[in-house]
Design a protein around this nucleic acid. Structure first.
Lengths: 319, 319
DNA sequence: GTATCTTCTGAAACGCGTTTCAGAGCAAGC
DNA sequence: GCTTGCTCTGAAACGCGTTTCAGAAGATAC
């Protein structure tokens, strides 16, 4: 495959001139520019991206770190990221961690080895303290709360969002409320619990169910929930998919929603809409976009930024 | 940041020796090996992946081309791909095309510019004829049918799968069957239509609904379906999400499933299970794995392969 | 007419790890 | 004692595009 030196020889110009033509530098005479273009066509020249990357030090790649690519929760984030990346001529390198700390480290090592220009972290086990040790090698943006100043954070304000969700439930007359969370120790779960205790007068520790991530978990939850003696009148889920699993199983058991138990989801997935799930709509695609744009801005010298986004109520029939 | 030459100087050995230590070449004396390791530690050496890539010509990256990353249909494929890639120390570069031919071209151009070692195409607008023009630059594997010999294909045998789905419907006593397809001109849709006409005695052109991709489309379909005078007794969907949208809307309208119309989905998404959707289980995660492994094998000199996978019936309550 | 720009060109160095090749030193084979 | 072979080492070339720097030629300024 022809390289820049072959082109130079063929067009009888210097390598520098060919490079200038490639980069549309103005100081090339029309005549030579034409000759170079012809040579490139004749030899079927294709610029070697690797060489460019080594030379400039810019990879035009960003690593995206998330637990599972097929978990619907991340779909909107990734979609926003993908669109923004495409627009700015960046490629996304996806790294699936399965919640393993070691995989997160490997993914961030790409930064150290200059395989990518930046990192976007949608979920992490790693402490921010450790994450900061990677910061010297490139910008990092997270979709979670609690990041230090050096790390950009574009996230859903889970505390405020849960407060507003609880208010929606209260406006519908529900006072005895339970909440369904994902991993119990994650910052978002902690914020949600805090909101729960701050805002719900009848809050009870045993009305917090943790460890529910998927629709299958939602199915399981139905059994657990129904076996409980004292049950809340409404459930606030932190994920639409868990809510849907629960809803499906309740339907199967012919238990009326919202008469027996009211439900409020979180995310706003279209599939929830089909089953009339009331939910808190989260601007995840927009967050994805902004995560990318923030990272890009940082690469161009901007300061890290922190921004919390809020959610809105989407009417359904489960309240 | 220290490079290999700095290490060489610091350890008072040649650059070659440092390279040998990095690559665990046996012909390095213990003494020098130790000196090199010490120098690397002292200077905080990090191997520059870019330089390695330029030097070896191997990127350890594969581009994955698909219309939308957040479409649940692709979730399992991508999951399988991601797991296999991780195991073999490859990175996945995701390219979202939104069904645009031009985006597919850009994605495959990565191959030409040596930005990736291979390409995996989960869905494409591009003709195989055009796709073959990229073949010279690296292995390509598709998840669709009809690929020429030069392009690997690991796919669901849509014809056989639709036949077996139709048989399931017939075994449940349904003769008047309609089918719901995605894009009408895609090879999979054509194969499905063929199976429909070959296997269903009462097949009718107006019982083929095309253009249904998402759960929102499924909701829309309910209206269209119900407004039709002569309706089939059963619907065979080519996507669980479309089926679920339809199912939700039918529930909202208090129309009994399967009494009014029986439903059979396709894919086997967990969320379908929650709502008792009968479906044809597709081994998409396995296909993802094999797509990667095939591509890897081709990079190591193996021939392209074609393999059709079959689906199995997953019992639900919508038949 | 001299000084100062502007335009255009190319040699060489740079980014950095790998590979090839030549050769030195030493041991085993016969 | 001489050949063969193995172990170890490093200089130089290679992959390939970009950038720096020096300089030539022509144009403009005053």
């Amino acid at each position: 495959m022809a390289n820049i030196r072959d082109i130079a020889k063929h067009a009888d110009v210097s390598v520098t001139t060919v490079s200038r033509v490639l980069n549309e530098h103005p100081y090339v005479s029309k005549e030579k520019r034409v000759r170079v273009h012809e040579a490139m066509k004749e030899l079927g020249y294709l610029r070697n991206q690797q060489a460019l990357t080594l030379s400039t030090g810019k990879t035009q790649r960003i690593v995206v770190i998330l637990p599972y690519m097929d978990h619907p929760y991340y779909g909107f984030f990734v979609n926003g990221l993908a669109k923004a990346a495409l627009e700015h001529n960046y490629r996304l390198v996806m790294w699936q961690t399965e919640y393993k700390l070691n995989e997160e480290r490997q993914a961030l090592d790409l930064l150290k080895h200059r395989e990518v220009d930046g990192a976007i972290v949608l979920s992490h086990e790693m402490s921010f303290k450790e994450m900061e040790t990677y910061r010297a090698y490139g910008p990092i943006a997270v979709a979670t709360v609690g990041a230090p100043e050096t790390i950009s954070s574009i996230h859903v304000d889970h505390y405020a969002s849960f407060i507003s969700g609880i208010r929606v439930l209260q406006e519908h007359g529900y006072e005895e409320i339970g909440i369904i969370l994902s991993r119990s120790h994650s910052p978002s779960s902690l914020a949600r619990q805090q909101a729960y205790f701050d805002e719900v007068a009848h809050a009870r520790q045993q009305w917090i169910w943790t460890g529910y991530l998927t629709s299958e978990d939602g199915i399981r939850l139905a059994e657990t929930f129904l076996s409980q003696k004292e049950r809340p009148r409404a459930l606030f889920f932190s994920s639409d998919y868990v809510a849907l699993g629960f809803l499906g199983e309740m339907q199967r058991r012919h238990i009326a929603i919202p008469e027996e138990v009211a439900m409020l989801g979180f995310d706003g997935h279209p599939i929830g809409h089909a089953f009339g799930l009331s939910t808190m709509l989260s601007p995840n695609e927009k967050i994805g976009r902004r995560l990318f744009e923030t990272t890009l801005a940082e690469m161009n010298g901007a300061q890290p930024e922190t921004h919390g986004m809020t959610v809105s109520y989407q009417v359904g029939t489960t309240l």
